[in-house]
Design a protein around this nucleic acid. Structure first.
Lengths: 307, 307
DNA sequence: GAAGATTGAAACCTCAATCTTT
DNA sequence: AAAGATTGAGGTTTCAATCTTC
């Protein structure tokens, strides 16, 4: 495993202290007669209006059974009620009662005060750092967790239909379905075979057993021996923005380097803006002319980087 | 109540998200077979070596009864043991067993990985912001809580002996006990009476019912009508650094302004470095000559600020 | 009496199994 | 069968009362 960032230890330390100071190790929330989980549920209901128990469980990262009992407690206390008349009778949409709103108001006052008093000890710059740091940490933790649900693995024969389907779905999305595009390569239906050699490879991105993207490399046809081409890297729209493009790209490049290549070349389209931002962030640089003879004369953008 | 800083709401939001992502709303810590409180106890014992249940409760901000049962659970699991042979038989010093150390090691690995994975999504500057922000927040929360144990109130007659004791203890600490110092003012033994008028006031700082400091104002003798003097502001050494000097000073200045004064003057000593830093931070500016006729010719440093 | 720790009763959280509706 | 929610059994946390040692 890689060496840890030097920030890990002090961050964990400070995070533990924060959690303890905020009383998060305690079951109850102050003198409000509600548990920590109940308190968070009230806040979230106040924020979003109507939520089912399942949605709350997802948001608070709690087990649905826990949530069920949390909700039962809040209902017993008259703080929330089920909004009836839902189409799907399995769902029970929850919302705050007037009493619940009042209780929530007092909770907010108390917490606002606690946070306000702490922030009052800092100057404006430090306050900004605290907010920015906490926001970035929360977001990074969430993204990191989301990424854990993905798996990158080498393509297998049984994956071929799914992978072909993704290629044929994504490329037209960017207008890359006319002549001179990779969508017409004969290999599209037999990717596992086409990238089986030692000097090539293709990997799929899977989520819950379903393939949602892929990418690979192979030697650049009619190009210098030490140059490989990044090939057919595509993701379904629903998984874009999760940062998995970067992960898969890194994976492919590491493997390409292992295979002995010194540089990696790629062809893309100016309209694929997010992909090109990714390539640039990964160290690829624009070049003005295509290399080799890929036959993909539909592409209008060429990049290369050292491995 | 004052308006809230604009940072309060986003900070609370991000803090809630962080807490949820870290699984702090859950009872159990991962698949390690320990509760959240047990996990924190192990970490703290690993960090500090030997602790009693009471000390752990203080550190984790948990009730001693909770701690008792947390400790019982860890003992039952063979993760901690009581180090015997304590002089005071009421205390039971706890420490990790070999098994406990092994378990802690695995917990650290798991948490390090989680934090590392999240930080890997950020660049170095952002990682620094996250750590700095979290550290400052933890510290501010702790200081703010500590401050809540203090009380600032107007001096009463019964306080006079205690206040006199503080003045007579603190001033000699800084060599301010020779001739020309306020320690010899006749008012020292009757502060409540001396500062009873409408154009004066004295407040004490109390902690757990004991007075630990004080400060006040009165019109500057033989000075301009609109100038008051900050008088006899002293704190016991054990409460210095808690930020209460600033709080009391602010309180006194607000009251002085309410009494109609436009400026506040003070006399101090170059050796009282922390006090002078406080005055400067509060907007006082050094002047080269004394004002009025306080009779405290022992002082060598004079400051003033607009109210 | 106070400091340090434990315990009874009650509420809370969790896993796995179960129920209801689609 | 799957989605949404509940429940039984067992561990965790809490308040107040209690015990032990100084």
């Amino acid at each position: 495993m890689d060496a840890l960032f030097k920030e890990v230890d002090p961050l964990r330390q400070a995070s533990r202290d924060t959690v303890r100071e905020l009383g998060m190790l305690q079951e109850k929330f102050g003198d409000f007669g509600v548990s920590m989980a109940q308190c968070h549920s009230l806040i979230e209901l106040g924020h979003r209006g109507v939520l089912t128990a399942g949605e709350l469980a997802e948001i608070l990262r709690l087990d649905k059974s826990t949530m069920s009992r949390v909700v039962a407690g809040l209902k017993r206390a008259g703080l929330i009620a089920i909004r009836d008349a839902a189409r799907d009778k399995r769902k029970k949409p929850l919302m705050l009662t007037a009493r619940g709103k009042k209780k929530l108001e007092r909770i907010h006052q108390h917490s606002n005060r606690q946070v306000q008093d702490a922030l009052a000890l800092l100057n404006e710059d430090d306050r900004k750092t605290v907010v920015a740091g906490m926001a970035m940490y929360a977001k990074a933790l969430a993204r990191s967790r989301a990424q854990r649900e993905f798996e990158v693995r080498r393509i297998e024969e049984r994956d071929n239909p799914e992978v072909a389907g993704i290629i044929r779905r994504v490329m037209p999305e960017f207008g890359a379905d006319g002549p001179g595009f990779a969508i017409h390569d004969p290999e599209v239906d037999f990717m596992s075979k086409a990238y089986a050699g030692k000097k090539a490879g293709y990997w799929v991105l899977a989520k819950n057993g379903t393939i949602v993207g892929g990418g690979g490399f192979a030697g650049l046809i009619s190009g210098p021996k030490d140059v490989c081409e990044l090939r057919k890297m595509y993701f379904l729209p629903e998984v874009r923005g999760a940062g998995m493009g970067r992960k898969l790209l890194e994976h492919v490049l590491v493997e390409a380097k292992k295979a002995g290549f010194k540089r990696c070349y790629l062809e893309t389209l100016a309209t694929m803006t997010r992909a090109r931002a990714l390539y640039e962030a990964a160290g690829f640089e624009k070049i003005c002319e295509p290399m080799g003879a890929t036959g993909h004369f539909g592409c209008d953008s060429w990049m290369i980087r050292r491995l």
